[in-house]
Nucleic acid binder design. Sequence first.
DNA 1: ACCCACACAGAACGATCGTTCTGTAACCGG
DNA 2: CCGGTTACAGAACGATCGTTCTGTGTGGGT
Lengths: 194, 194
Amino acid sequence: MVRSRAFDPAVALSRAVDLFSSKGYSETSMDDIVKATGVSRYGLYGTFGNKRELFEQALERYADSMGKQSFLRLLEPDASLSHIRAIFDERIDSMCNNGESRGCMLCHTAMEMAPHDHEIEGVLQRFMKRMSKAFAVGLESARERGEVKADLDVRSAGEFLTGAIFGLSVLARAGFPKQTLDDFVDNTLASLTP
Amino acid sequence: MVRSRAFDPAVALSRAVDLFSSKGYSETSMDDIVKATGVSRYGLYGTFGNKRELFEQALERYADSMGKQSFLRLLEPDASLSHIRAIFDERIDSMCNNGESRGCMLCHTAMEMAPHDHEIEGVLQRFMKRMSKAFAVGLESARERGEVKADLDVRSAGEFLTGAIFGLSVLARAGFPKQTLDDFVDNTLASLTP
DNA sequence: ACCCACACAGAACGATCGTTCTGTAACCGG
DNA sequence: CCGGTTACAGAACGATCGTTCTGTGTGGGT
């Protein structure tokens, strides 16, 4: 009796994440999304509401997948400094290797939207605090096994790592070579070790 | 015989810098600039060319003034760690106190334009390398007076500070309180000291 | 096999963008 | 004081934006 939807909202959202990650909100047009997903305007508006709501869902999905792929492992009892380094390395890979300059969506959103969009700002701060917390938990494990300074304030250091990961994103976005990014990570992590 | 120009291009450019700093390139319209400067489209196009060229001149001016106001002092022989801390503190003040969320124009430009605008990318990298170099020179002075680790690689640490200052900018832009930003600076600089 | 609800593709709309054009008024050398 | 050059304010242009609307065709329950 009804005609069924011909596209998968999850993969469409995934394509939208790619676009928003590489071009930001205002530089990504609905037409870009239509072309990249192959989904008609009708389908996009019917499924996601409008551009703004689509962006919110894309942001949520981006942060969730980053959390699950990278930060969840920091909460396990065997978390170590190498896990933290792996997170930075993965971010370098995702920003360098990917041909078409996929940037950090959180970083991009913070610069572009946070100051004049309080709802987005709140979402963003929630994600960033979650990152800092995960870093802190991971650092506590690393501290217990003597990998970082014994007197390290893990809460403060967690926020430091969150800021550092955004600094890294900006350097990558500015086009600096992988070597520069690797050096940055080395300096960042060296500041934690005894 | 000729009618003389009724506005000062330098102050108009300064207003443009303010707008581009707080909203970025694409979110700032020529109409915004007309209203903020009081200069007509005729005057803007006649003096600066077009929006893109106006932006380039604004970027150049932003970086120059930041260099002269903050980084030049690092090249003097008495430069110390406190000078470096002062640069970070000044950036916090300029991004927090200023009512209408003036962000870091270099950071914003890197995220928004660098990946798909090679000319801007080059300009940006030139500025960032200049910052890293100035940090390195200041760190060398600080090292000679024993304020930082004796075995510090000042070139690499200079790049680290440049990245850190952008991380700081993103945190500020995301709306974190001054205390969080101060902690970030403390952690950043603590990594250099013995 | 039929029917009709609904997903589809794309035209259309009003707003806003960067840029150019036009008519008017002001300035300065003579 | 006058004439002509030029800066001015704002209308106008084409392009593109987000969004809505329209007409078409398809798919699944009966």
